[in-house]
Nucleic acid binder design. Structure first.
Lengths: 213, 213, 213, 213
DNA sequence: TATGAATGAGGTTTCATTCAT
DNA sequence: CATGAATGAAACCTCATTCAT
């Protein structure tokens, strides 16, 4: 009398994995938005629930507690850039510049719209209080990223013009514009956000010499 | 010789401004440590009080409420780099490199030990939820800093070798290594912090060409 | 057959208006008792909750805060005598005496047991500090009551023996025995409360001449 | 150098009973005003102190605690009407009416301005929560007052025209207009206070028959 | 005596979590 | 599975009271 398709008579509802996954997703989506807007302690479970069109109690059917919800949100956030990094293999004979652009530009094109900028701000904001999460993030995102960067730096030393040499000891400098873009647009832009991709290209110009494009 | 008119009763115990200031300072010191460790919402007034060796109620003799305490902490934090910026006038005939080093190196020498790194992380972390404070910080610290940087960039365009030219549109890139150093050491270093000053010098080497030192 | 459009998930436990109303009522009952016994500031929310067999937090599901709870208690208290006043229309050809008895005696019969006496004391006690509530009470109870009294006084002037004439300028004197009964039994009776109805009848005897009953 | 007269050199100050009494009086005056305005629980010791131009601690040199202060204030308030009652002896051959006017009118002439009305409201308001004080008030004020009233009623029965007879069982009815005046002007007058003395006279007119004045 | 900084018990309110329906 | 009323620990803040000066 309720559902039309399955539910072959018997007792109650048959658990529908599709529906369950959908509910989980609704929660995660709402939780992400709320955590980003209010931080961990500022987030109210009831708001997350309302944002997902659910009742408070339902959250606890899917996540043990608020901490667990936070962890799942971050892990999901983290898994996506990770997949992107792992995905495409390097073309052969790529220049340093091309390699850096290939690695970073897709990430920065819709930095704010995609939520990645806010995620970075969230991790910066809450990382200190959630060392476990910071560690996960480090392991899943930062370390692979750093490995790629170091490869770039080394290939510059081997085959390039050596302009990256001064950064050999501090490869994380390559990521500095990304972090700066996230922080700047979050706090200091005063309503005039910078374009992260353009800023990164300017950084490459300054370090590698202007591109001819 | 004391007061001539009212003084209707005895003076009683005279408030000692020294002692009052000392208590205030104890509170601010403890509050800073706690806010840095736990963020605004994570900070418990009892802990701030205990950290200052005082009772809860005493905090409220000096600060209206938790928000006011937070404001005072941040304002005090903000006033320091501001003073630094305002302090020394530019020597004449200074090279671009010298100017940038003069502006940034003192800030970065004891970045972690001085607490400045943690302060930067605090502001990044809580700025979004305290827009008023973020605005103050922007006005008092970031904007003057940016003005100095833009002067440097322009003087490079005018009299230097023009290697800063690509950054003209994004002068905040000069500050990127500072932000990156704070974030890196706070979250991603995994126990192996970088030396912020050395990292900044490497950045300058990469952008301006290696120094001969 | 239930809802056609949204109903995105199951309905879960359906809120039971009966049960909700019952809980609200439990709270209001306990709150009335406590406010009457201790006044507004003397009332502790824990005690109200305990008196209703509930936990503190539950109060806040039904009433925004202590002020709101107090308002609801008083409004409920006020609504009852108001309804009584509005209820019965005057029979034709009623004597002054009969009219006054009809208006006041039902109110006074179980003055203490009904809680009306205590309510009057509560309003006298807290009215000064809750001007809004005093105004509501004035509008809902006192003013209608006074209108009825004035009608009585005028009909006495027109058709009666004029013994109420001296009170024409101060019709509230008719209510004085009621107020006195409440205050007397609350403070000054010393364990020997007066019978408010009997006292009111004595008052009528004194003013209108003894009844033959 | 401070005081001019006594203080014969030696150690510290010689306790000056005059000054002490004056301080006590300052406190009592301020406490009265504050208790009347805010009730017992609403009164802050610091406000009482400020109102007396003193510091908080000083209150505790003169009164053990807030309860004691309240008791002293009320006792002082109570002693005044008592003195009035005891003061003047009844003239011989006085009519009932004259006697009632002599007893009540001085009390009612400046009922509001003198603060007596507010005092009555205070006692009504807080009496329930301070049974001891209510008892004192009953013993010192109400009972003597009632005794006087009963004498009046009895002398009416003996020598008067007996119009007070219906009130013999409820002599407190005589006081009802006083209580009503206090309550009315405090809560229900809506900015148009009644004249308590005039109201009392109207009451006498209604009960004893109009005076020829 | 007088003072007012300091105390900490105690009050109101919030909100993560549970559980009967 | 979903619900939301109920819970109660825990946070912020107030203010009567103390006590060193």
């Amino acid at each position: 009398m309720d559902s039309v398709l399955p539910s072959p008579r018997g007792r109650g509802r048959v658990p529908d994995p599709q529906r369950t996954a959908q509910t989980r997703d609704l929660i995660l989506r709402s939780a992400l938005a709320t955590f980003l807007a209010r931080g961990f302690e500022g987030t109210r479970m009831v708001d997350v629930a309302a944002g997902a069109g659910l009742a408070k109690g339902t959250l606890y059917l899917h996540f043990k507690d608020k901490d667990a919800l936070f962890e799942f949100v971050l892990q999901q956030l983290i898994s996506e850039p990770l997949a992107r990094i792992r995905a495409d293999p390097a073309p052969a004979g790529e220049t340093i510049r091309a390699k850096l652009e290939r690695l970073f530009l897709p990430l920065l094109r819709d930095f704010e719209q995609s939520g990645r900028a806010t995620v970075m701000r969230l991790i910066i904001a809450e990382g200190a209080r959630f060392p476990t999460l910071a560690a996960i993030h480090r392991r899943l995102v930062i370390e692979p990223m750093m490995q790629l960067i170091e490869e770039v730096v080394q290939s510059d030393a081997a085959t390039g013009d050596g302009r990256l040499a001064p950064m050999a000891r501090f490869p994380q400098l390559i990521g500095a514009p990304v972090v700066m873009a996230a922080v700047w647009n979050g706090l200091w832009s005063g309503g005039a956000p910078v374009d992260p991709a353009a800023m990164f290209l300017a950084f490459l110009d300054a370090v590698l010499g202007p591109s001819r494009t």
